[in-house]
Amino acid sequence: MQSAVLGVLCAGLLIVFCVCAALLREIMVLRERTDRLSRLLTEPRPGSRAEDALADVRVTWMSGGWLLAVDSGCPLCHEVVEALGAHAGDATVLLTYDNPGVWAPHWSGEVRADRALWSELAPLTPPTLMHVDTSGRIDTIRLPLNGADALSIVTATAEADRGAIHYA
């Protein structure tokens, strides 16, 4: 009788061991899948940046500076324009498809109504703050959260440029 109890006990321990091994294997598989998924979500893929998607877009009438794409029906656009209007001035150009006069009360700088460029930038949601390099290529795209955010983006770049060494 003792050998029968001992046999059942050993069989039970063997089953518990096999179940624990199977659970440990499933946990390892789940961890590997989770790690792979998190890598896919966090690592940028080639061509996945907005700047890469707009690599062929050229702002032919601009050579360096910030370009702010705005829509008159967008309340956040008005907030950003008011915040930048007093501080950004000549360094930033407004891009719109609307009548440029809509922005006159809050913007003293240049306003461009360029429907062709606006249609190329259509996938982006206004207000969109874009830095244009000297060749007219968009090299940085930012979507400001509010007026203060837009102002900090523009002023941080201006301060970094002031400290940089420029070669002629």
Score class of each variant (00 low, 15 high):
M1V: 10
M1E: 04
S3K: 11
L6T: 02
C10L: 15
C20P: 00
C20S: 09
A21V: 13
A21Y: 02
D35H: 02
R36C: 03
R45A: 07
P46M: 07
P46E: 11
S48G: 13
A50Q: 13
E51W: 03
L54M: 15
L54V: 13
L54T: 10
R58L: 05
R58W: 01
T60S: 14
W61G: 14
G64F: 01
G65W: 04
G65P: 01
W66Y: 04
L67D: 03
L68V: 05
V70K: 02
P75Q: 06
P75Y: 09
H78Y: 05
E79W: 03
V80Q: 09
E82K: 14
G85N: 06
G85A: 04
H87C: 07
L94I: 04
L94V: 05
L95I: 00
T96W: 08
T96D: 06
Y97H: 12
Y97D: 15
D98A: 12
P100M: 12
G101M: 12
W103E: 07
A104H: 15
S108G: 14
V111S: 09
A113W: 04
D114K: 00
R115A: 15
A116V: 13
L117W: 07
W118M: 08
E120V: 00
L121I: 00
A122K: 12
P123Y: 06
T125S: 07
T125I: 07
P126F: 09
P126H: 06
T128S: 06
L129F: 08
D133N: 15
T140E: 15
I141H: 03
R142K: 09
L145C: 07
G147T: 06
A150Q: 07
S152Q: 08
V154S: 02
T155G: 00
E159L: 12
E159G: 00
A160F: 08
R162D: 11
R162F: 11
G163M: 14
Y167R: 12
Y167M: 10
Y167L: 15
A168Y: 13
